[in-house]
Design a protein around this nucleic acid. Structure first.
Length: 431
DNA sequence: TCTGGGGTCCTAGGACCC
DNA sequence: TCTGGGGTCCTAGGACCC
């Protein structure tokens, strides 16, 4: 007996999920006046290190060498005729904005949800009178993006955001014959959604959840749709229930309601170029990362009330590392933030080689008036604040490298290197 | 010799309160 | 005399996404 859903009460919207084919690599191709589908480019996170990671590769590179996102640099054959390119995040961000401006010709702001640097959802239910059918709108967007930017976009169409996203990932991206557009609706779930394999390719299922499901005898999306919801809920909590409904193509998210940018945390993550055995060198890295993150706070007139520090140990040891957080008085002061992080660091430090450092600020709030602490004389507080602002101003004008704390100049310091990065990647902007 | 970086959400267990 | 119980908040860890 097949478990099938009654879709008559489910929302039916006209949702597009759009992404740019091999976005970073395609932008690089266009910059070189090449056709994005014919170019042979791989954008690699750290081209200088064998451990560098492919962030995007041209369709041709995928086809000829099987190189895709996540491939390591050392896995790329030496003889391969591929341009290995350093990421230019600032450039991609610019192109992203141009593409979004094209979307806005077709939908109002509330019906647009920018999901990532190269993926957006559009609810075009209200756009038909002006622009025609859903498929017409998809084709017009493709045409505009091609004419104006020479980029190829792929479009998934569905009754809700999930179906649109699945249509995009599992059909549109691979289907050049149909002009990179795919349409999935409730009626097609059994022939489309249920056939997605392996499990981990499904949105929301990673390798861990796949293993867990396998242990429960669930090996396909069809199996998942036939499973006992009660049991899933018991094993996975609310996620279990959600997985079950997703397997049936059900998703009640309304774009116009869901689009509430959270923005509650800022984080900096860094895999060090070697294992750090000297705790002072780790401290310096923490200071730098905190400083950069604090600059970001001040630039946006925000403050944090919670600092988190995660330390990952070297792969050579059995221990994994630790992660701790500490509430602090709402602040944007580098000094206070660093103080909190170092409390965490020295409270939990063990003499084990460190390879990964993560600094996160939580409880981010708009900065109101100057927040005075009861325990600190007001004058001292203000002067520290002025100092931070001055430092930021100079850095904004002359670049991060123009002002470094003395500690950053020792061998553990990577601030200079990192200053050339935006979002962890080279910005491509000359300082 | 091989470790990207920036996010969000969920959960279990403990502290604390009434 | 009693191993109460529920709510809320916090923390650490895990899992996922692009």
């Amino acid at each position: 007996m097949l478990q099938v859903m009654d879709y008559s009460k489910e929302p039916r919207r006209d949702i597009l999920c759009i992404d740019v084919k091999s976005f970073f690599a395609s932008v690089e191709a266009v910059e070189r006046k090449e056709h994005p589908l014919k170019a042979r480019i791989a954008v690699v996170s750290k081209p200088d290190s064998n451990g560098g990671l492919v962030l995007a590769s041209s369709p041709m590179v995928k086809k000829l060498y099987g190189i895709k996102t996540g491939t390591r640099l050392f896995e790329i054959p030496k003889h391969a005729r591929i341009d290995i390119v350093r990421p230019r995040m600032a450039l991609y961000l610019e192109k992203n904005l141009e593409i979004i401006s094209i979307f806005k010709r077709f939908v109002s702001d509330e019906d647009l949800h920018v999901y990532s640097i190269d993926e957006s959802f559009l609810d075009v239910t209200q756009s038909h009178r002006l622009f025609g059918s859903t498929a017409d709108i998809a084709r017009q967007i493709q045409a505009f993006v091609w004419e104006e930017l020479h980029l190829v976009v792929t479009v998934g169409i569905g009754d809700n955001p999930l179906l649109a996203k699945l249509a995009l990932d599992h059909a549109a991206k691979h289907d050049q014959a149909h002009n990179f557009i795919a349409n999935w609706h409730y009626e097609d779930v059994q022939e489309t959604v249920w056939n997605i394999a392996p499990l981990r390719d499904f949105w929301g299922i990673g390798s861990r959840t796949e293993q867990h499901l396998n242990r429960l005898g669930i090996h396909s999306i069809r199996d998942l749709a036939q499973a006992d919801v009660g049991k899933l809920k018991k094993k996975f909590g609310v996620i279990g229930e959600q997985l079950f409904f997703h397997a049936h193509g059900i998703d009640r998210t309304r774009l116009s309601e869901s689009f509430v940018p959270k923005g509650t945390s800022f984080s900096k993550n860094q895999i060090l170029n070697k294992d750090y055995t000297d705790k002072h060198e780790v401290e310096i890295v923490i200071r730098e990362m905190a400083e950069e993150n604090a600059m970001r706070l001040r630039r946006h007139h925000l403050s944090t009330g919670l600092v988190k520090l995660s330390i990952g140990f070297s792969r050579d040891v059995a221990e994994r590392g630790f992660s701790h957080q500490l509430p602090i008085a709402q602040t944007d002061s580098s000094r206070k933030i660093i103080e909190g992080l170092l409390v965490l660091f020295y409270r939990h430090y063990q003499p084990i080689p460190v390879r990964v450092v993560n600094v996160t600020f939580g409880k981010i709030e708009p900065k109101s008036a100057l927040q005075l602490s009861l325990f600190e004389p007001a004058e001292k507080l203000i002067s520290q604040e002025d100092l931070d602002k001055t430092i930021d101003m100079i850095r904004k004008k002359y670049g991060y490298t123009s002002l470094l704390h003395a500690s950053s100049l020792s061998s553990g310091g990577m601030a200079v290197y990192r200053s050339k990065l935006i979002g962890g990647h080279r910005s491509g902007i000359q300082k």
